[in-house]
């Protein structure tokens, strides 16, 4: 974290100079400026904002949240913004230090995960039965799963938190924001319904993921038995024994597909799948979008629809 702090101090210094220089030339947009860290927040915020506010995303396309380092421009953007939205302190541990030195009177910070019931110990070992149906591989007790948006009831709660931020910062447009948020929540509820129906009658409920623990919330909501190769920490690497265990798990569960996460290198997943003789299907964790998807204007619900298609294929689900 020391390195990040240094970068931030430098970036803030540069940003202050930068902001001072360009204040005159750039005409202050009258619109509310909003910065969101990750893709789900960005997508929710821009839906709520409609044409009344301008929402930008902090992470460059394709990047994993933990590889993120702020550029001077990012600091300028945040210092100019009226609202900053992040998921939670587990997902973006760098957010807090990023906000140091910002004028908190002017900048409203929204913790989108406020009020969410977090999954604890998800990355505990196989004998951890606190959360039925959710098993990570390795990891440490007490690890919190930060991917809350993958449970769509949490997503709705995040929409509420973001909406509250908008109303507080820009009360004049409160009604407009409420209307947009209500529409979004309706679509999320419908998505939830499609997942519930789509995953109701499947040949298997075993959901195997050859990567870092990501889809725990989704699995819990729809009653799937989720196993990932490795724990939440993106630095952790699997042992040879865990790899072998996973191969046995794939074979004994009789599944035909192993899941991998979009954007990340599928090396380990491919190895496991080849070893166990199954195919690989991709799921989107939705932290971020690839560059091409950004250009196509793909939304959170689109990603989740695609995930549902792949999940149904992977778990051999029948239509009702």
């Amino acid at each position: 974290m020391k390195r990040l702090n240094m970068v931030i101090i430098l970036a803030v210094a540069v940003a202050v100079v930068f902001a001072g220089c360009s204040r005159q030339e750039q005409k202050e947009s009258a619109k509310l400026q909003v910065v969101a860290t990750l893709f789900p927040l960005y997508d929710f915020a821009r839906t709520i904002a409609g044409d009344r506010a301008e929402v930008t995303m902090l992470l460059p396309p394709g990047m994993e949240p933990h590889s993120f380092e702020p550029k001077p421009n990012d600091i300028v953007r945040i210092s100019r913004a009226g609202m900053f939205i992040y998921t939670n302190r587990y997902m973006e541990p760098w957010a807090e230090s990023l906000l140091k030195g910002m004028d908190r009177q002017r900048l409203r910070v929204v913790d989108a995960g406020q009020g969410v019931q977090y999954l604890q110990n998800v990355a505990g070992d196989e004998h951890d039965h606190d959360v039925p149906g959710n098993h990570g591989a390795e990891g440490h007790a007490g690890v919190v799963d930060p991917h809350i948006w993958l449970d769509f009831s949490n997503a709705a709660l995040m929409v509420d938190n973001i909406l509250a931020g908008f109303i507080a910062v820009d009360p004049a447009n409160a009604a407009y924001y409420r209307m947009n948020a209500a529409g979004l929540k309706g679509r999320l509820a419908a998505l939830d319904q499609r997942y519930r129906e789509g995953l109701a009658d499947c040949a298997t409920r075993v959901f195997l993921h050859g990567g870092h623990y990501t889809f725990g919330y989704l699995a819990r909501r729809y009653g799937l038995e989720y196993h990932s190769l490795s724990g939440i920490s993106s630095e952790s690497e699997p042992s040879a024994a865990r790899m072998a265990e996973m191969v046995r798990q794939i074979r004994s569960s009789g599944v035909h597909y192993l899941f991998a996460e979009e954007l990340l290198s599928p090396r380990l997943t491919d190895t496991l799948a080849a070893e166990a003789g199954v195919a690989v299907l991709k799921l989107h964790g939705a932290h971020n979008l690839g560059k091409d998807d950004v250009q196509r204007g793909v939304g959170f619900i689109d990603l989740m629809e695609q995930n549902l298609v792949n999940l149904r294929k992977g778990l051999a689900c029948r239509s009702k």
């Binding site: 460059p60 396309p61 394709g62 990047m63 994993e64 590889s67 993106s234 690497e237 699997p238 040879a240 790899m243 954007l263 990340l264 290198s265 090396r267 380990l268 491919d270 190895t271 690839g290 560059k291 091409d292 998807d293 950004v294």
Partner: peptide, 18 residues
């Protein structure tokens, strides 16, 4: 303007995934 994938995750292999 970013990538379609996470650069770091593609950079390094793992001896178990050869």
């Amino acid at each position: 303007g970013g990538y379609n994938v996470d650069l770091l995750s593609y950079l390094f292999g793992n001896i178990l995934s050869i």
